[in-house]
């Protein structure tokens, strides 16, 4: 049933979109693929899990806590792993990012072990709600609702606030932003904070959705979200939202059409196709040379 698949696809796609936003914002400003972004998402999921199961916090408070912790992790990663390499080649920063990614997932493996952990069943009561022929679960509703809220919040920050406008200016032209008196280092930290907070929210939502949190969950989710960001046009915020949703829907439809064993391959097929046909993605601008 198409409506049902669309609901499932949008719910899944919202989580991709939340993660994709971090990739796209960071790339927009410092043209770096933050390979550790998936691990920030994973860290958020663990913080949420611990907050719910040990601190007995309710899911919303747990999510806020996860966002705050991941925010700090993201800012610190930029500070120690990327900032010192700002004037070096793009490749050095990329290697550093891969290093941070491996470090964080190994750290999680050491602390939490290799088994996936689930949220307690009381974390969020799941009920099915009829929507015409289809059903939407309260959990899907939560995911879509929270994602929509966060993305509207992001849209507000980027469009209306001073620091958000500075983010756009810096991503358009780094040097000129500095010449106008914008503290670009602060803007970069802020960008990492925003992206990491969104990823953490995504981590908690995905953890609850699949009832599984594990040290390596950031890898596949990160790669898919990256594919979504490229599909939408890397550097474009609306692009990341659109790309995430489209990827989620495509994936669910693909599975429904009987390609379930190729589930993860769908994202990468899309990635390759986009790179071949339209490297700037759906909403991406032509990448200007920044002199």
């Amino acid at each position: 049933m198409l409506l049902q698949q669309l609901i499932n696809g949008v719910a899944l796609g919202s989580t991709y979109a939340l993660i994709a936003l971090g990739y796209t914002m960071v790339y927009g400003i410092i043209t770096l693929i933050n390979f550790a972004h998936g691990e920030i998402f994973m860290a958020g999921a663990f913080v949420g899990l611990l907050a719910v199961s040990i601190l007995k916090l309710n899911i919303f408070v747990a999510m806020l806590l996860a966002m705050v912790v991941s925010m700090s992790i993201g800012v610190v990663i930029e500070l120690i792993a990327y900032r010192p390499l700002r004037r070096s080649s793009r490749l050095s920063a990329l290697i550093s990012a891969i290093g941070v990614s491996i470090f964080l997932s190994s750290l999680a493996l050491m602390i939490f072990g290799a088994d996936a952990k689930g949220f307690p069943s009381t974390a969020f009561p799941v009920r099915q709600i009829k929507v015409g022929e289809a059903e939407i679960s309260s959990l899907q509703l939560l995911i879509i609702g929270i994602s929509a809220l966060l993305m509207m919040g992001l849209e507000f920050i980027v469009k209306k606030t001073k620091i958000g406008k500075a983010m756009r200016a810096t991503s358009e032209d780094y040097n000129t932003a500095a010449l106008m008196g914008i503290n670009v280092n602060r803007v970069i930290s802020f960008t990492f904070a925003l992206g990491s907070a969104l990823a953490a929210a995504g981590g908690v939502l995905v953890g609850v959705l699949f009832n599984a949190v594990s040290f390596n969950m950031g890898l596949m989710a990160g790669l898919k979200a990256f594919a979504a960001a490229v599909l939408g046009g890397i550097g474009s915020i609306p692009g990341a939202m659109l790309g995430g949703l489209m990827l989620g829907v495509t994936e669910v439809l693909g599975v429904a059409a009987g390609f379930s064993s190729y589930r993860d391959a769908i994202a990468f097929t899309i990635l390759v196709l986009v790179l071949l046909v339209k490297p700037t993605g759906l909403l991406g601008r032509k990448i200007q040379k920044k002199v």
């Binding site: 406008k165 200016a169 358009e172 500095a178 008196g181 280092n185």
Partner: peptide
């Protein structure tokens, strides 16, 4: 750093104008 230099009272109109193309005049 550059942003402090602006605060001290030096500002530059860069070569090729370099307006923020996708932002409004007001922004």
């Amino acid at each position: 750093p550059p942003h402090e230099i602006v605060k001290l009272g030096i500002c530059q109109v860069p070569e090729g104008r370099r307006v923020f193309a996708n932002m409004s005049v007001l922004e």
